[in-house]
Design a protein around this nucleic acid. Sequence first.
DNA 1: TATGAGACCTGTAGTTAGTACAGGTTCAAG
DNA 2: CTTGAACCTGTACTAACTACAGGTCTCATA
Lengths: 150, 150
Amino acid sequence: MAEKTYSHIPTMTIGPLSEKTGCHIETIRYYERIGIMPSPPRTEGGHRVYREEHLKRLTFIRRSRELGFTLEEIRNLLLLVDGDDFTCDEVKTMTLEHADDVHRKIADLKKLERVLKDMVSQCDRGDVPDCPVIDALFQTKAYPSIATSP
Amino acid sequence: MAEKTYSHIPTMTIGPLSEKTGCHIETIRYYERIGIMPSPPRTEGGHRVYREEHLKRLTFIRRSRELGFTLEEIRNLLLLVDGDDFTCDEVKTMTLEHADDVHRKIADLKKLERVLKDMVSQCDRGDVPDCPVIDALFQTKAYPSIATSP
DNA sequence: TATGAGACCTGTAGTTAGTACAGGTTCAAG
DNA sequence: CTTGAACCTGTACTAACTACAGGTCTCATA
């Protein structure tokens, strides 16, 4: 009964980890390459063997990506988590900054939508070859500048 | 008075073109490389010489980019313009499709903003080490799925 | 125990829309 | 004629992956 391996701990290869997290296999390997996922132990043949902690970490990364954090931001969040001396305040600040970014992006896109709709509303005569949209695109400054955030 | 060159047509090198359009020089050369700007004539020494038509075309591209069209979409718009047998309808359709994209993106980002704000609103006790944001990020599905468009 | 399908491996290249050099040449003003 | 700014080419880099090619490992079944 006593085994020298950790076989009593549930492990998995990259395939199941991929299924459980919804991350593509290539993405998981990519995360390892760029250092936000640790290199897991391998089988003798070289296959990656993951444990519960890897699943947790990858879930965290995935979830953060879904929320639009960049990998750089996630890297920082993970540093805080790993250091385990972070304060809630630091995390809150980062999240609020990100929320602001999102907010700005929404505002930019709304302006954009407005301009596009305006342009289209000019052309309601169907199949004439003269096109107000094209005309507008040739204008240097037909509308107040649209500041699309990077 | 009769000159065999086109010196009576206003020309410019890449620097002034860059200034007038707000496109970086490298970007202009890039557009030429990928074929959405034509290769202009050159001086004997190899410097690019642009004319009014180049300025117009680049303005068109710039403006379209500002409006969030991809280079691929712009390529199509330019095909229509170049073919000069396009109908306003085709352009209108493309623009409306793009507007829809933008609309969806706005909706997605709004959901995102909501989730971020919700997460942050959980943590109002300042500097405790236990952080609801981090906790939420470790959850597989703490919120209804956020479909961030590609 | 042999075998074969399927899972896994590494490494490289491509995607989008540019930006940032290095190292060399040309232009135009004085 | 000189000099410094502007221009040239070519390559490499960015973010966040995705998509192979070509080879190896695993493990359930015969």
